[in-house]
């Protein structure tokens, strides 16, 4: 509760949270209030925005606003799921290796490096390509998470290894804490804001990776995402036709999400750390 009060007092947190809230509202509110249909043609191709149809139509004459809302939902879902998977995997492996040291660390570092040198995009493409009908959003998100955890593991390992030799960890050990207790109470709190940053970058990269795969036609097979929309716009000459409403809104949304998460992170650094708080 105290933490929340401090958070609300920080302008960065308020801006970031409001922006994130706005994108979440944009993703989840309109379907409840409006009748949005992403599969019905509502007019000709690339009709500019009008009062009734806020973002005009796409190259097939579908309602661009409906597509955008639906795409935003999918992208958020893929991004957050991939971000969570990559952060959790990377943190577990990184913290454990970094804290334990010795041969355990050597083995985990070797595994991480092995995964790191495998070009994850190619693996993703191969994986997606080998699955035709079953390419659901969730599966794509899990794929992304499982191939991008490596650099967060490396980053977290370095942090954990430097915390390991700190006096407060030594004191925790002679207080009788086991590995789990030390990691959870005496290492992770010091990494919290760092992990949040890792999570943000993994989420952002999840959204971007998904759009790359979608561009290659290997994305989720029957779902719209922001990446999908961008890719469709580029492939169907939205740029040369001057149909800005087809590519500009998804671009802005991707930027806004990343910006919101970034501002949240920097403001939380100042709040999670009680020294900076007071």
């Amino acid at each position: 509760m105290k933490l929340l009060r401090h958070l609300l007092r920080s302008p960065g947190f308020v801006v970031g949270a409001l922006l994130l809230l706005a994108t979440l509202l944009l993703a989840f509110l309109p379907p409840l209030l409006l009748e949005l249909d992403t599969s019905r043609r509502v007019g000709l191709a690339y009709v500019p925005p009008t009062a009734g149809r806020w973002l005009g139509t796409d190259h097939l004459g579908l309602d661009m606003f409906a597509l955008l809302v639906s795409g935003l939902r999918s992208s958020l879902y893929v991004g957050f799921l991939a971000g969570i998977v990559a952060t959790v995997l990377g943190t577990l492996i990184g913290v454990y290796g970094g804290y334990k040291g010795g041969w355990i660390d050597d083995v985990l570092t070797a595994c991480t490096n092995l995964f790191l040198v495998i070009p994850s995009l190619i693996v993703l493409i191969l994986l997606s390509g080998s699955l035709q009908e079953g390419r659901s959003l969730t599966l794509i998100a899990l794929f992304i998470g499982c191939t991008t955890w490596t650099w967060s593991a490396r980053a977290v390992r370095a942090q954990a290894a430097s915390l390991r030799s700190r006096d407060h960890v030594a004191l925790a050990r002679i207080n009788g804490y086991g590995t789990l207790g030390i990691v959870c109470l005496h290492i992770l709190p010091y990494l919290l804001s760092y992990l949040f940053m890792v999570f943000i970058l993994q989420t952002a990269s999840g959204i971007l990776t998904e759009s790359v795969i979608s561009m290659l036609g290997l994305g989720p097979y029957d779902t719209v995402s922001l990446g999908n929309l961008l890719n469709q716009a580029i492939r169907n000459e939205a740029l040369s036709d001057g149909a800005w409403w087809a590519f500009f809104p998804p671009m802005v949304l991707i930027t806004v999400i990343a910006f919101a998460l970034y501002v949240l992170n920097t403001s939380m650094e100042g709040v999670f750390n009680p020294r900076l708080r007071k």
Partner: peptide, 18 residues
């Protein structure tokens, strides 16, 4: 550790700041 305990040089570093 019930038998053998320690005090450290830098007490700020020895306590968890959270």
């Amino acid at each position: 550790w019930r038998h053998v305990q320690a005090v450290f040089q830098d007490p700020y570093a020895a306590f968890n700041q959270f």
